[in-house]
Computed example of a mutant assay.
Amino acid sequence: MTAIEADTELALQAEVNLASWPQIDLVSGGGRSVDVGEGVSRIYPSIPPLARSPSKAAGF
């Protein structure tokens, strides 16, 4: 499983939180710029609450 976090500070915290889950690879970067490779069966995006309107989500 791969977790992608765009925010650098959140990625650092996620790294700590996920340390006991060796099956999860954490990648820091935007979802559009990260190559997840072949064999991806599902992607679960999480959009911050402030970005849920279409005008604000355009930056993501």
Rank of each mutant, 00 (worst) to 15 (best):
residue 2 T to I: 14
residue 2 T to P: 01
residue 2 T to E: 06
residue 2 T to W: 08
residue 2 T to Q: 13
residue 4 I to Q: 04
residue 5 E to N: 04
residue 6 A to S: 15
residue 6 A to P: 06
residue 8 T to N: 04
residue 9 E to M: 06
residue 9 E to V: 09
residue 10 L to E: 09
residue 11 A to I: 04
residue 13 Q to M: 05
residue 13 Q to K: 08
residue 14 A to D: 02
residue 15 E to P: 00
residue 15 E to Q: 10
residue 16 V to Y: 03
residue 16 V to Q: 09
residue 17 N to I: 01
residue 17 N to F: 05
residue 17 N to S: 10
residue 18 L to D: 00
residue 19 A to K: 12
residue 20 S to F: 08
residue 20 S to E: 14
residue 21 W to M: 13
residue 21 W to E: 13
residue 21 W to C: 09
residue 21 W to L: 15
residue 22 P to E: 08
residue 22 P to A: 05
residue 23 Q to L: 07
residue 23 Q to T: 08
residue 24 I to W: 02
residue 24 I to H: 01
residue 25 D to S: 13
residue 25 D to W: 01
residue 25 D to R: 15
residue 25 D to N: 10
residue 27 V to W: 05
residue 28 S to D: 02
residue 28 S to Q: 15
residue 28 S to F: 02
residue 29 G to F: 11
residue 29 G to P: 10
residue 29 G to H: 07
residue 29 G to M: 10
residue 31 G to K: 04
residue 31 G to C: 05
residue 31 G to D: 02
residue 33 S to E: 15
residue 33 S to W: 00
residue 34 V to I: 15
residue 34 V to R: 07
residue 35 D to A: 14
residue 35 D to K: 09
residue 36 V to P: 00
residue 36 V to E: 05
residue 37 G to T: 07
residue 37 G to Q: 02
residue 37 G to D: 03
residue 37 G to E: 02
residue 38 E to C: 00
residue 39 G to E: 01
residue 40 V to K: 10
residue 42 R to T: 07
residue 42 R to V: 07
residue 43 I to W: 03
residue 43 I to R: 05
residue 44 Y to A: 10
residue 45 P to K: 09
residue 46 S to Q: 10
residue 46 S to W: 12
residue 47 I to D: 00
residue 47 I to K: 10
residue 48 P to L: 11
residue 48 P to E: 11
residue 48 P to D: 13
residue 48 P to F: 05
residue 49 P to R: 05
residue 49 P to Y: 03
residue 49 P to T: 07
residue 49 P to N: 05
residue 50 L to D: 12
residue 50 L to E: 12
residue 50 L to V: 12
residue 51 A to P: 03
residue 52 R to Q: 13
residue 52 R to H: 06
residue 54 P to K: 03
residue 54 P to V: 08
residue 55 S to T: 15
residue 56 K to M: 14
residue 58 A to L: 13
residue 58 A to R: 15
residue 59 G to R: 14
residue 59 G to S: 15
residue 60 F to H: 14
residue 60 F to V: 10
